[in-house]
């Protein structure tokens, strides 16, 4: 990946963060921590890796995203709106009565959402079924599955992981967002994950660990050709990543803060974006 492509993805990640924070500000509260921590990943997936058609969101041969940690829906909605799946104004309807943008992902409500998730663990098996189905239908696409490091407390994730490797579903890419926190506190205190890479390898995956905010490393991991085993990417991450004040908030799973606080978060990302633009101009 050249410098310009890398900057473009970083810029897209910042745009997703701004749209996400505006979306949450419009409602006043929401799942900010786990949404922020997948913004760089979403920028790489929707900016460079995934094949999809905005004008034909249900195209059968598209690459599909299953965000099993369904509470990160607001980050995906921001990404989809920026890509033109629906108008940006719709983001302001998040969690309003009758909205098409519910707290957790719902494929029957939101254009561009590929899988209904929210009851943690359940996206994993659905992603397996989707990848198996696509493979049996002879499609050449891939399914990308995002799982939370807290979410893997759910035993269903490990049933699905076992099946993925057993059936060698190399068209399914597991991405674990190891952001070190779950709702009640640090994952290390609630239910430690131990060595996730070793765990996934023991389950039959080719596992890599990359920085969750490194778009180039994420891109390389996502584009790595499977060598006889499905790929698992463990994102070494920070919950609330990209907004220092949120990163430093102990309990940031869901936050309810005043509009001016949301504005301060948005201003911080905008400052990063401006610095990036400056970098581009100087280059």
């Amino acid at each position: 990946m050249n410098t310009s492509e890398k900057r473009e993805l970083r810029r897209f990640a910042a745009e997703i963060r701004i749209a996400l924070l505006e979306e949450l500000k419009a409602r006043g509260f929401g799942h900010v921590g786990g949404s922020l921590s997948i913004c760089d990943l979403l920028a790489v997936l929707y900016g460079k890796v995934m094949n999809y058609r905005v004008e034909d969101p249900k195209w059968a041969d598209r690459d599909k995203l299953v965000c099993s940690k369904g509470h990160a829906g607001p980050a995906i909605y921001a990404t989809l709106a920026l890509k033109g799946f629906f108008p940006m104004e719709q983001l302001k309807t998040l969690n309003r009565p009758g909205t098409n943008l519910p707290s957790h992902c719902d494929k029957n409500k939101t254009v561009g959402i590929d899988c209904t998730t929210g009851s943690l663990g359940q996206g994993t098996s659905q992603a397996v079924g989707m990848a198996l189905g696509d493979k049996l239908k002879g499609r050449q696409n891939r399914v990308f599955l995002i799982v939370g490091d807290g979410e893997i407390d759910e035993g269903q994730c490990w049933e699905a992981a076992m099946f993925t490797a057993a059936k060698n579903l190399t068209n399914l890419v597991w991405i674990i967002d190891d952001n070190k926190k779950q709702l009640d506190g640090p994952t290390a205190d609630i239910l430690p994950t131990f060595d996730l890479r070793a765990k996934m390898e023991a389950f039959g995956f080719d596992a890599v660990r990359v920085k969750g905010n490194d778009v180039e490393a994420l891109y390389e991991a996502l584009e790595k050709k499977p060598e006889g085993k499905p790929v698992a990417i463990i994102m070494d991450n920070v919950k609330g990543s990209g907004v220092k004040a949120v990163e430093e908030t102990a309990s940031n799973h869901s936050m309810n803060v005043a509009p001016e606080v949301w504005d301060s978060y948005i201003a911080a990302v905008k400052a990063d974006l401006e610095a990036l633009e400056k970098e581009v101009a100087e280059a």
């Binding site: 899988c115 659905q126 397996v128 079924g129 198996l132 269903q156 049933e159």
Partner: peptide, 22 residues
């Protein structure tokens, strides 16, 4: 498809297969 002794996973896989057109 034999899913092994994992009924929750089987139900989820079935749901995903339905989404894929089965």
């Amino acid at each position: 498809i034999n899913c092994g002794i994992a009924e929750g996973n089987m139900a989820g896989i079935a749901a995903g297969l339905a989404a894929a057109g089965f």
